[in-house]
Amino acid sequence: MGKLDGRVTVIAGAARGQGHSYPVNLTAAGPNIIAPDVCADLEQYVSARAAGDLEETVRLCVAGGYVNTKP
């Protein structure tokens, strides 16, 4: 049982930077995580891999064994 079991956490910008680290680190606490991202290049942050970055965030969360990827 995690400290946040039964709670919902929304983390915007989950593919990159701090938005990436929060869902990865929170998975052990047990919340349901909603982690959207634009997945496109932004003027102030250019990344050719935005969609791949979000997939990596999901992969790391699932690897922790705490994530159900089914809706």
Rank of each mutant, 00 (worst) to 15 (best):
M1P: 14
M1R: 14
G2W: 00
G2V: 04
K3A: 14
K3L: 15
L4S: 08
L4H: 01
L4R: 02
D5H: 02
G6M: 09
G6F: 00
G6T: 07
G6L: 01
R7W: 02
R7D: 08
V8C: 03
V8G: 03
T9I: 09
V10A: 06
V10S: 01
I11D: 01
A12F: 13
A12M: 08
A12E: 13
G13E: 06
A15Q: 02
A15E: 10
R16D: 11
R16K: 13
R16C: 08
Q18E: 03
G19E: 07
G19H: 03
G19R: 07
G19S: 10
G19N: 04
G19Q: 04
H20S: 11
H20T: 07
H20G: 10
S21E: 14
Y22R: 10
Y22G: 07
Y22K: 08
P23W: 02
P23K: 10
V24S: 00
V24Q: 02
V24Y: 08
V24P: 06
L26Q: 09
L26C: 08
L26V: 11
T27H: 12
A28P: 09
A29Q: 14
G30T: 01
P31F: 05
P31W: 00
N32M: 11
N32Y: 09
N32P: 04
N32G: 13
I33E: 06
I33W: 00
I34G: 07
A35Y: 08
P36D: 09
P36C: 05
P36I: 11
D37Y: 02
D37T: 05
D37N: 04
D37K: 03
D37Q: 06
V38P: 03
C39Y: 01
C39V: 00
C39F: 00
C39T: 11
C39W: 00
A40P: 08
A40L: 12
D41Q: 15
D41G: 14
D41L: 09
L42Y: 07
E43M: 13
E43K: 05
Q44H: 15
Q44T: 13
Y45H: 13
V46T: 12
V46M: 08
V46K: 14
S47L: 04
S47D: 05
S47K: 10
A48M: 08
A48S: 12
R49E: 11
R49K: 10
R49Y: 00
R49S: 11
R49H: 08
A50L: 09
A51F: 07
A51V: 04
G52H: 01
G52C: 00
D53L: 07
D53F: 07
L54Q: 05
L54H: 01
E55P: 02
E55H: 04
E55L: 04
E56G: 03
E56R: 15
E56L: 13
T57K: 10
V58E: 10
V58N: 06
L60E: 15
L60Y: 02
C61P: 02
C61E: 09
V62H: 05
V62I: 09
V62K: 06
A63P: 02
A63D: 15
G64R: 11
G64Y: 01
G65Q: 10
V67I: 09
N68C: 11
N68A: 14
N68H: 04
T69Y: 07
T69E: 14
T69H: 01
T69V: 05
T69I: 12
T69W: 03
K70L: 12
K70P: 05
P71M: 12
P71C: 13
P71N: 13
